[in-house]
């Protein structure tokens, strides 16, 4: 029961932190919508073309926007020593990675999920494609959070080139984008492609605590 309370209060802490940094989340969402508008202006007013490539635009921009927040994944807690304090409070590094990943999904990815309907209206995406987009993103975004956790924890030891983390996430997210767009374009293969996406999620979710936990331990050791 005590352990469960600690987990609940960990999320309370994350909620307070994200609420105080709400402008960061808002900036990410504004970046997402401004980028959509830039795409529309650069393509031109052809509704059919926009509607045809709209889903791809949304997915690519969701990926780019969510990588913007990766710097904050562990960096603040690492620099002010909170990572160590949370560990001393009885959480292993691997478990901290799981909690931080869920927190990233709840406080960073969910706002994007909520803004997808507006993006679909702007890009004239049909209702059935909207449903597939929402399903693929809700699964893909958790995978992106896991990848973000791994790359951000690796980046704690890298003081020179912070963009490297974003590049790693983008490279590893290529299969997610391929299968997510596949769901929308080849609707009859929905079940098989969603199973593949779920499989990728399970693999990354299983690797995440092990890889991120090790990187967190190493970076605290060498800090």
């Amino acid at each position: 029961m005590k352990f469960l309370n600690k987990i609940i209060f960990f999320f309370y802490r994350e909620y307070k932190l994200n609420l105080s940094g709400f402008q960061d989340i808002l900036t990410n969402i504004i970046f997402f919508f401004v980028s959509i508008l830039i795409f529309i202006f650069s393509i031109g007013p052809d509704e059919e073309v926009i509607s045809l490539i709209g889903v791809g635009i949304v997915w690519a921009l969701l990926l780019l926007s969510s990588t913007l927040s990766l710097k904050k994944f562990y960096q603040d807690d690492f620099e002010n020593g909170n990572l160590l304090i949370i560990h001393l409070n009885g959480f292993s590094f691997g478990f901290i990675a799981i909690l931080k990943t869920i927190s990233h999904f709840l406080f960073v990815q969910i706002p994007f999920l909520l803004s997808i309907p507006i993006a679909c209206i702007i890009l004239n995406i049909s209702d059935d494609k909207f449903f597939y987009l929402l399903t693929s993103f809700s699964m893909g975004s958790l995978t992106l959070s896991c990848l973000g956790s791994i790359s951000s924890s690796m980046n704690l030891m890298n003081h020179r080139n912070y963009l490297l983390g974003s590049v790693i996430v983008m490279i590893f997210s290529v299969p997610i984008i391929i299968f997510s767009i596949g769901i929308i374009n080849i609707e009859q293969n929905f079940n098989s492609l969603i199973n593949i996406l779920f499989g990728i999620l399970l693999i990354v979710f299983a690797i995440n605590p092990w890889a991120s936990g090790l990187c967190l331990k190493l970076s605290l050791e060498n800090n």
Binding site: K16, N80, N82, I85
Partner: peptide
């Protein structure tokens, strides 16, 4: 454990 730097959340 209290480290030499502050762990308080400054925001």
């Amino acid at each position: 454990y209290i480290a030499d730097r502050t762990s308080s959340l400054t925001r």
